[in-house]
Design a protein around this nucleic acid. Sequence first.
DNA 1: ATAATATATATAGGTTTCCGACATATAGGC
DNA 2: GCCTATATGTCGGAAACCTATATATATTAT
Lengths: 118, 118
Amino acid sequence: MRENDTFPFLPLREPTFFILLSLFPGEKHGYAILKEVEQISQKRVELSTGTLYEALARLLEQGLIERSEDGRAPGPGKPRKLYRLTGLGRRVVEAEAERLAQLSNAAHRQMRDQRAGG
Amino acid sequence: MRENDTFPFLPLREPTFFILLSLFPGEKHGYAILKEVEQISQKRVELSTGTLYEALARLLEQGLIERSEDGRAPGPGKPRKLYRLTGLGRRVVEAEAERLAQLSNAAHRQMRDQRAGG
DNA sequence: ATAATATATATAGGTTTCCGACATATAGGC
DNA sequence: GCCTATATGTCGGAAACCTATATATATTAT
């Protein structure tokens, strides 16, 4: 089957979700992910490198991301390693976004119903 | 201060969020929480009793919930223990719901921008 | 009567994921 | 040379979850 292959991966925790989300537009290396996550979360999430690189190893093993060619762009630091979403990884991000939307709706429904006195 | 006292509790994990959310309309005992969470999550979340009672102990200690009078209502099972949200607990649920809404928006924005070719 | 079921609370052991601290390596500016 | 920014990685501990197990009580079926 293919509709439900995202199920065992959900829910994602916040850092993992942001890492995958940062790869949605295209491939990136670890440090670039770190900076992008700060940006798209408006500084609300600042990953530690421990969280980042352990997550990348895990996501590789789970088949949600894969390595692409190393961009040896001139610049400081150790050699970069580029990562991109797999098809499965893309479906997992989309499924998690959908879960979050439903959860948010369920929450506001529950809080509204209370105020109405139901 | 009082605006930011919810910060150290966020993000909540899914089971904890649903437990607090189930208490929003009013006090409940543990087993009732278990059933309510199944209902408001449309069976997507089924708490184990381990998760539930450990979470209740933790939330009590953190001051997000408190005990109310034991309703010794006639019925089967061990004596019930009733719990309700504290003021802090209520603010935490609301802050988490707000965080989820923003996270959901950020996610859809990121996925949409990609499709637009940015 | 008694056996089975649904209700109700609780603890123990193991796993996953995260976080903070530390370690290593490279390039450019002062 | 030294500092800073870039870049990857490991280690130990903590938080929260899950599965399994244990206990207790009332109702229902046999």
